[in-house]
Amino acid sequence: ERVRARYDYEAQNEDELSFKKGDIITVLEKDDGWWKGRNGKEGLFPSNYVEELE
């Protein structure tokens, strides 16, 4: 599954994923509120910062 970033997100910890608004992220795992994904790097990000691609 792929999602698009709705906002910029700056990683707060080294296991998190940074991205810019409009970036496409491949979702690897979904957990409550935090998803694991890849966009060149791999890490956790808040699920409310992304939207599913149509």
Rank of each mutant, 00 (worst) to 15 (best):
R38V: 11
E14S: 11
W34V: 08
F19I: 06
P46T: 02
N39E: 04
A5W: 02
E52V: 13
W34K: 06
A11G: 10
L53R: 04
S47T: 07
N39K: 11
R6T: 10
T26H: 10
N39V: 11
P46R: 08
Y49W: 08
K20N: 08
E1F: 14
R4D: 06
Y7E: 11
D23Y: 03
A5E: 05
V3C: 11
R2C: 15
E14K: 11
V27L: 09
E1A: 10
E52I: 13
G22E: 03
D31R: 15
Q12E: 10
V50D: 00
K36G: 01
N13F: 08
K41L: 08
G40C: 10
Y49N: 04
G43A: 02
F19N: 01
D15C: 14
L28P: 00
N39I: 14
A11W: 01
K36R: 15
F45K: 02
L17R: 01
S18F: 03
L44Y: 15
N48F: 12
N48A: 14
R38L: 09
K20I: 07
D8F: 01
A5M: 02
F19A: 01
G33H: 14
D32C: 12
N39G: 08
V3R: 06
L53C: 11
E1W: 14
K30L: 05
E54L: 11
E10H: 12
G37P: 01
E51S: 08
E52R: 13
E14T: 09
E29F: 14
F19V: 00
E10F: 14
E29P: 02
F19H: 01
E52K: 12
Y9K: 03
F19M: 06
E10A: 09
R2M: 14
D8Q: 05
D31Y: 15
R38N: 12
V3I: 04
E51R: 05
I24D: 02
S47L: 05
A5F: 02
K36D: 02
E51V: 09
G40N: 09
R4T: 09
F45P: 01
K20G: 06
T26S: 08
Y49H: 09
G40M: 08
T26V: 12
K21M: 10
W34A: 04
E52T: 13
Y9A: 01
E42N: 07
N13I: 01
E51L: 06
V3D: 05
S47P: 15
K36C: 12
V27C: 04
E10R: 10
R6W: 06
V50Q: 02
A5K: 02
L17K: 02
D23I: 04
K20H: 09
K30E: 03
T26P: 03
E10K: 11
V27F: 04
K41V: 10
R6A: 11
K36I: 10
W34Q: 05
E1V: 13
K20C: 10
V50S: 04
E42K: 05
G43C: 03
Y7P: 01
L17E: 00
I24S: 04
E42Y: 08
Y7W: 15
G43L: 02
G40A: 09
G22Q: 03
Q12T: 11
E42I: 15
F45C: 03
K30C: 06
K20V: 08
I25A: 04
E29D: 12
K20F: 10
N39M: 13
G37F: 00
A5D: 05
Y9T: 01
Q12V: 09
W34C: 09
L44E: 02
R6M: 13
E14V: 10
S47D: 06
E16T: 06
K30S: 05
I24C: 08
E16V: 03
Y49Q: 06
E54W: 14
G37V: 03
L53Y: 14
K36T: 08
Y7F: 12
D15E: 11
K30T: 06
A5P: 04
S47W: 09
L17N: 03
E54G: 13
Y7H: 08
E52A: 15
E52Q: 14
V3K: 05
V3A: 07
Y49D: 02
Q12P: 03
D32A: 12
L44N: 08
E54V: 13
Y7M: 13
K41C: 08
V27D: 01
D23V: 04
K21W: 05
G43K: 00
K30V: 07
E51A: 07
E51N: 08
L53H: 07
I24E: 04
P46F: 04
D23E: 10
D23F: 03
L44T: 10
L53P: 06
P46C: 08
R6V: 14
D15V: 09
Y7C: 15
V3P: 01
D32M: 11
V3Q: 04
I25S: 03
K41D: 08
V50W: 03
D8N: 10
F19S: 00
F19Q: 03
D8R: 02
A11N: 03
S18Y: 04
E42P: 05
E54D: 13
V27R: 01
K36V: 10
W35H: 02
E42L: 08
L53K: 05
I24H: 04
E52S: 14
E51M: 10
E29R: 11
K20D: 03
R2S: 10
D8G: 07
T26R: 06
D31L: 15
Y9S: 02
E10I: 11
F45S: 02
N13W: 06
N13Q: 08
G43I: 00
E1Y: 14
V3E: 05
A5C: 09
T26F: 11
G40S: 10
E1M: 14
G43V: 02
L53I: 14
N13P: 01
R2P: 06
G22Y: 05
S18N: 07
S18M: 00
R2W: 13
G22M: 04
E42F: 09
R4Q: 08
G40K: 09
Y7S: 07
G22H: 05
P46H: 06
G37I: 00
Y49L: 12
Y49M: 12
E16W: 03
S47N: 07
L44Q: 08
G37K: 00
F45L: 02
D31N: 15
R4K: 12
E14H: 10
G22A: 02
F19R: 00
A11R: 02
K36Y: 14
L53M: 13
K41W: 07
D15H: 15
R2L: 15
E52F: 12
E1R: 11
W34G: 04
V50R: 04
N48L: 12
K21T: 09
R38Q: 11
V3M: 10
W35I: 08
Q12R: 13
A11F: 03
K30R: 11
S18D: 06
R2E: 14
E52G: 12
L17I: 13
W34S: 04
K21D: 03
R6E: 06
D32V: 12
R6F: 07
N48D: 13
R38Y: 15
K30G: 00
A11K: 05
V27A: 03
I24T: 04
G40H: 12
L44W: 15
D23T: 06
K20Y: 06
W34Y: 10
I24Y: 10
R2A: 11
E51P: 02
D23S: 07
L17H: 00
G40P: 04
G40V: 11
D32H: 11
V3H: 08
S47Y: 10
G22V: 02
G40L: 08
L17S: 02
R2T: 13
V27N: 01
T26K: 07
F45Y: 00
N39C: 12
E10S: 10
L17V: 05
E51C: 08
N13E: 08
E51K: 04
E16R: 03
L28N: 03
N48R: 12
K36N: 05
R38M: 11
Y9V: 02
E51F: 06
Y49P: 03
K30D: 03
D8W: 04
P46N: 06
W35C: 05
